[in-house]
């Protein structure tokens, strides 16, 4: 195990202290595990709060700032945060126009955010929630917990964040967030398992020379294991898996996302293959983002997320954003 840590127990707290040191425009409460933009609550603005297990950085804390989230609640590694965190965050960012919770579809996140929403409403905060479930690798049926929330979370937080920044009311921001969810799909591939600090050994056993197709972002195994494939073959498989479900009629945003241990050199090469497949399938690309945004600790591999966008969604995607993990415009 080669990890740049002190002890497993303090990994999250240590990272939060480091974030505080690096980003003076954030208020980082390491004890209560809430990251808030320094100018919150922003007058007359709907606030966005998200959160989830740690280990997916820069998601979510790296997306706190003007144009995106107002607050993020990091849980333990791969463990959803507790309701107390979201209640505290909601109280810190609510300007009186309400709070939107952005929740990735995992049983733990759903239950804890649900409890938090009830508690925050008891305290007089108006709360709406949107569930992100974009991962086509999971069959969405009554026999599973439903599709997981993965890369599309970035699309939702960016676009809904821009809508809130423009002063839209809670119902509009919520409706836009839902539209982004409905317009987005993702598929992930692991070339290696990841190692949680607490366990110290890989979360699943993936022999060299094999890859896991349809992997999640918590080191949970995927649906199918195959002999190692080329970047070209993986792009064909992943993009087709997404397109089979999305069938876009509009141009798409493309997120080629690294899982944490795959170099940008390889991710850009993979993006070239993703573009080739999209060209072959006659899907026009509106914007592309390549990098490590929704990671899974030290897992090697990547995911592809597509979001079909009309003029309004594209305008909100292009709107200025100033966060640690995503920054453009102005």
């Amino acid at each position: 195990m080669r990890m740049l840590i002190n002890v497993a127990e303090t990994v999250v707290a240590d990272a939060l202290r480091g974030m505080a040191a690096a980003h003076p425009d954030l208020v980082v409460d390491a004890e209560n595990r809430v990251i808030v933009r320094r100018d919150a609550p922003v007058a007359e603005k709907v606030a966005l709060v998200s959160g989830g297990g740690s280990g997916h950085e820069p998601l979510h804390g790296g997306f706190v700032g003007p144009g995106m989230l107002d607050a993020a609640c990091p849980g333990e590694v791969f463990t959803s945060p507790v309701p107390d965190q979201m209640v505290r965050a909601a109280a810190a960012v609510d300007s009186g126009r309400g709070v939107l919770f952005v929740v990735k579809n995992y049983t733990g996140d759903v239950l804890n955010f649900q409890m938090a929403a009830e508690l925050a409403e008891d305290e007089g905060v108006q709360v709406a929630s949107v569930l992100v479930n974009d991962d086509v690798a999971v069959t969405d049926s009554t026999f599973t917990a439903g599709r997981r929330g993965t890369g599309a979370t970035l699309f939702v937080e960016k676009i809904a964040g821009a809508a809130a920044e423009e002063g839209m009311p809670l119902e509009r921001v919520e409706a836009l967030a839902r539209r982004v969810v409905e317009s987005s799909r993702s598929f992930g591939v692991a070339l290696s398992a990841c190692t949680t600090p607490a366990k110290g050994s890989p979360t699943f056993d993936l022999p060299p020379g094999e890859l896991e197709l349809g992997v999640g972002i918590h080191g949970e195994p995927g649906r199918e294991r195959r002999a190692m494939m080329t970047s070209r073959e993986i792009a064909d498989f992943a993009v087709d898996a997404v397109l089979e479900d999305l069938e876009p009629r509009l141009p798409v945003l493309v997120l080629v996302n690294g899982m944490g241990a795959t170099p940008l050199l390889e991710l850009y090469g993979f993006n070239a293959e993703v573009r080739r497949v999209l060209d072959e399938r006659k899907v026009p690309v509106a914007r592309t983002l390549v990098g490590n945004y929704v990671t899974s600790l030290d897992m090697a591999g990547c995911s592809v997320s597509l979001c079909q966008v009309d003029g309004e969604l594209l305008r909100l995607w292009d709107a200025p954003v100033e966060t640690a993990g995503l920054r453009w415009g102005r």
């Binding site: 297990g53 959803s80 507790v82 733990g108």
Partner: peptide, 12 residues
């Protein structure tokens, strides 16, 4: 437990 566990186990 709700305030300290997180995950699905905390609320459950």
């Amino acid at each position: 437990l709700i305030s300290s566990v997180g995950g699905a186990s905390g609320p459950l």
